[in-house]
Design a protein around this nucleic acid. Structure first.
Length: 882
RNA sequence: GGGGCGUUAGCUCAGUCGGCUAGAGCGCUUGCUCGACACGCAAGAGGUCACAGGUUCGAUUCCUGUACGCCCCACCA
């Protein structure tokens, strides 16, 4: 018999078990191991990051999947790793430098990069260490990094190949520019946010000085310093005569034309638009159509350059905005400033307002890539779970713009392009070291390397055994928020280079939010640290609490008290196990007792187990964690602990060795199975209990690598369930009777029963008296109305109790009155229903019959209650009690 | 501007292919130290299933609309 403390203490169990698993090599898989390959690659967290609840959810799900597949005999591998996270990491290190009173420019490029590597070496392992605390069974021998040597080789190969195929090109186009990060951004790195803005209306005077000029409006007045045209709609009668005339720039020595273009919305503002080709995408497109001059007025920091003229040069764009408005006012050209709310793009990394800017950058042409990805999804080669993610994903793919991949930062994969004399360009797999040639200073968007992750982690472009075995990967687990950033690009690039999808299934979970569904954020102060949860309640409880709420695609509300609830469940399981261990007396899981040696409660729990097993398997297969978690929780707590263990006590403490043996063997089997089923979600407590139960020594002899049980539908026993429910119904009613009459649980009394299940109740009398705490059962053909008794109505009959010395009469009378009232109401409702011709003739016969039966039952019940009430009146004197 | 989702107990959510007395966890109330567990046991209170119409014998469930809330996408100044 093992000594186990009465409360489960995760802290004393989890770290040791983890070390044991790891040192036994249970996390490691080899490409040539037996079993059908199954693989998951971790969505690599930023190397500078630390574990937040979103990670915890994502990794808990992956670990549950991988553990289950491992138990199912698959050659399952979970590849861990981190992302070098270009801009994010560079920003972190730049902040460190700022704190030291220096910056990257002072350091120089090489020294800066060295510094980032050093930073990574010091603190880059944090998040993966934290992942271990969660219990993640990742193959740590295979840890990879998006910026390590092999991954960098893959990046280089893909870049060069796409360039050779004409799908990567360099061009001057309008891109999103973050003035703080001083780099270009892709479209999806820009977050649009509604802001309270202003619409400034002003006039451009005509060049010939006639008339009032023409009214335009803008939310960014400073851009007028780079205006090179005014546009109106060709069909706008107000301006028909003005097309072709020229206006004069009020602050610069320039004139430009009024042009006609379909793009202009005559309904908006004055119907005339100022055109700034260098700083607005639409304006730029129009400039191409009308061959307009393009004047870039801002430098890398969004400060106005000399081209705007002395008066406005050297101003930050927002200062320039104020200065321009003031100058327009002064010149008498300002017509008004109106409140105008609109969406403004912000840098997703630093929240700075993004500046659309004309710039020479590298791009990936997306159309062909996107088409292949969309086709693969439409053909079901990769499926989304939940399926509802699919539609938005495909729509997004259909509307892709080319992807700007060059970044003007230092931390990242340097673009493998070299510029030589006379404007020559070489894009090469090998570094170009010839004299007079210099490499492009820019680096690639982080997502360029992470898109290769599902195959680069296995050593692509080498045809490694790992690649052969585990690619395509089985399931990608990620929040829906990252489908566009990452999932789409993995699909596209994988199909293009490997002709295969990167994963068969994309399982989208939701975002972890607080208990009221609010986003967790530092400014709200509602952030919960998963490590706090793990340390105070255990990794199992944290995992269970997360997964219990994680329906596919649905956001996951979380509060510490919910984790406490999960910890209580772990404790419940632990104590059920303690009870079992004490009573099993050395019996280990093995063959079940023969069918005819099984008591009713054995047949019942085995049947419930079999159903739970089937439901849980189906839920796991469907990635429906809440259903799986709820099913196991309900089985363990409400059926195994509350009923089966209680039912067992009779035989365990009895004197029939054969009965006790059958009970033990059944219990051992049930516990063994449920621990296996629960292990993917709660690996630690199940492992600890399983070792106690089976005597397993750990290491290779672990639940972690035990076989996933086969569900046995032959154990499903509807008859046993129905019979057991009769007993439960009676016990529940006795409990209620006790509670309502304040009869102590310890008080024993005898029940006289009248039941249409008399045979069953007689047969199981011992069990019933044990469960209900009775002193005995007596059976009668018909219950006689007897003074001083009360009748308990239960689903299969009635039971009579002698009240003397047992109850509070007045309270009981009151209760009966309330009950009679309720019965009368219900009766009226059903009578009304049955009086309805249409119902009786059109509803299915079984529905009508059910209602009729219910009515009859109510009549009977009402009679009983009335009788009881009358009988109570016969008791004299004050209520007795002990 | 386009698209999607949601609204069920005090809170967070299940559920109903239209028909049993609509469920769980947490919270709340009452009573319980019977040898696994007070991180527990037993019982209980609490819901016009957002609102208005429609279909139907019957709607919380299907349809339409309204209100409120949330999310994603978006180059109308």
């Amino acid at each position: 018999m093992t000594e186990l403390p009465s409360a489960y203490d995760p802290a004393s169990v989890e770290p040791d078990l983890y070390l044991d698993w790891e040192s036994a090599g249970l996390f490691h898989a080899s490409a040539d191991d037996d079993g059908e390959p199954f693989s998951i690659v971790i969505p690599p967290p930023n190397v500078t990051g630390s574990l937040h609840l979103g990670h915890a959810l994502d990794y808990a799900i992956q670990d549950a999947i991988i553990r289950r597949e491992r138990m199912r005999g698959r050659n399952a591998v979970w590849i861990p790793g981190t992302d070098h996270a270009g801009i994010a990491t560079q920003n972190v290190v730049e902040r460190l430098l700022a704190a030291e009173g220096t910056d990257r420019h002072e350091l120089g490029r090489e020294a800066f990069i060295e510094r980032v590597w050093q930073f990574r070496a010091e603190s880059g392992g944090t998040i993966l260490r934290q992942l271990r605390e969660l219990g993640a069974s990742a193959d740590w021998d295979r840890e990879v990094f998006t910026f390590d040597e092999d991954r960098s080789r893959a990046v280089r190969e893909v870049f060069v190949a796409l360039y050779e195929q004409g799908l990567i090109y360099r061009g001057t186009r309008l891109i999103n520019w973050c003035p703080r990060c001083a780099t270009a951004l892709s479209d999806i790195e820009v977050e649009h946010r509604d802001v309270e803005g202003e619409l400034t209306r002003f006039r451009y005077p005509f060049a010939d000085g006639s008339g009032d000029g023409i009214e335009v409006a803008t939310t960014r007045p400073e851009t007028m310093l780079g205006d090179t045209a005014i546009a109106v709609h060709p069909d706008d009668d107000r301006y028909r005569g003005l097309v072709g005339r020229t206006v004069r720039h009020p602050f610069q020595d320039r004139e430009f034309a009024i042009v006609a273009d379909e793009y202009v919305d005559p309904e908006f503002g004055s119907g005339a638009v100022k055109i700034t080709p260098a700083h607005d995408p639409n304006d730029h497109a129009m400039a191409l159509r009308h061959d307009l001059e393009v004047i870039d007025i801002l430098d890398d920091s969004a400060v106005t350059t000399d081209v705007v003229g002395e008066r406005f040069a050297g101003l930050d764009r927002f200062e320039a905005r104020r200065a321009v408005v003031a100058a327009l006012d002064e010149a008498g050209l300002l017509l008004g400033v109106d409140r105008h709310d609109h969406a403004v793009g912000h840098c997703s990394r630093c929240e700075t307002v993004v500046e659309p800017r004309l710039s020479e950058q590298w791009f990936v042409a997306m159309r062909q890539l996107a088409e292949r990805a969309a086709r693969a999804v439409r053909d079901g080669r990769t499926v989304f779970v939940p399926e509802s993610s699919t539609r938005g994903f495909l729509e997004w793919l259909d509307n892709l713009h080319d992807w700007c991949i060059s970044r003007q930062i230092w931390w990242g994969h340097r673009i493998p392009a070299w510029y030589g004399p006379g404007g020559q360009i070489r894009v090469s797999r090998e570094d170009v070291t010839d004299d007079g040639w210099a490499q492009d200073p820019d680096v690639l968007d982080t997502w360029f390397s992470s898109q290769l992750w599902p195959f680069s982690v296995f050593g692509w472009p080498e045809r490694t055994p790992e690649l052969e075995a585990w690619f395509p990967t089985s399931t990608l687990v990620t929040g829906y928020d990252i489908n566009t950033f990452w999932v789409s690009r993995m699909l596209m690039i994988s199909l293009w280079f490997t002709d295969d999808v990167p994963f068969r299934v994309v399982h989208n979970h939701g975002l972890v939010r607080d208990e009221h569904g609010k986003k967790m954020s530092k400014s709200f102060g509602n952030v919960i640290d998963p490590l706090d949860l793990i340390r105070s309640h255990g990794a199992d409880a944290t995992r269970f609490a997360l997964m219990r709420s994680a329906a596919p695609g649905a956001d996951v509300p979380m509060a510490e008290e919910w984790v406490e609830g999960a910890r209580r469940f772990a404790n419940k399981l632990w104590n059920a196990g303690r009870f079992a261990l004490v009573n099993l007396d050395g019996t280990t899981p093995g063959d079940l007792p023969a069918v005819d040696a099984r008591a009713l409660e054995d047949r019942w729990i085995l049947s419930r187990l079999a159903r739970t097993h089937a439901d849980v398997d189906a839920a796991y297969d469907a990635y429906d964690w809440p259903v799986a978690a709820r099913g196991l929780y309900h089985f363990v707590w409400d059926e195994l602990a509350d009923w089966y263990l209680e039912a067992l006590k009779r035989r365990m403490h009895g004197d029939d060795p054969a009965e006790a043996d059958a009970a033990r063997r059944t219990l051992a089997h049930v516990l063994d199975t449920v621990l296996r089923l629960l292990h993917p979600v709660m690996p630690f407590v199940t492992e600890a209990m399983w070792r106690s139960l089976t005597g397993a020594s750990g290491g290779g002899d672990s639940l972690m690598v035990a076989a996933w049980p086969d569900s046995d539908e032959r154990l499903i026993d509807a008859d046993a369930e129905a019979r057991f429910d009769v007993l439960r119904g009676l016990v529940t009613e006795v409990n209620r009777f006790r509670s309502q009459n304040r009869i102590a649980p310890s008080a024993r009394f005898e029940l006289t029963l009248e039941s249409d299940r008399r045979d069953l109740l007689e047969e199981e009398a011992d069990l019933v008296t044990s469960l209900a705490g009775l002193s005995g059962l007596v059976f009668a053909d018909t219950l006689r109305d007897a003074p001083g008794t009360s009748t308990i109505v239960f689903p299969a009959g009635r039971a009579q109790v002698a009240l003397a010395g047992l109850i509070d009469v007045a309270a009981e009378v009151e209760r009966l009155d309330r009950e009679l009232d309720r019965v009368a109401q219900e009766r009226a409702r059903i009578e009304g229903k049955l009086a309805n011709e249409s119902f009786v003739s059109r509803a299915p016969a079984e529905v009508v019959d059910r209602e009729r039966a219910r009515l009859a039952e109510l009549d009977r019940t009402a009679g009983e209650l009335a009788q009881q009430r009358d009988a109570l009146g016969a008791i004299d004197g004050p209520p007795t009690s002990d």
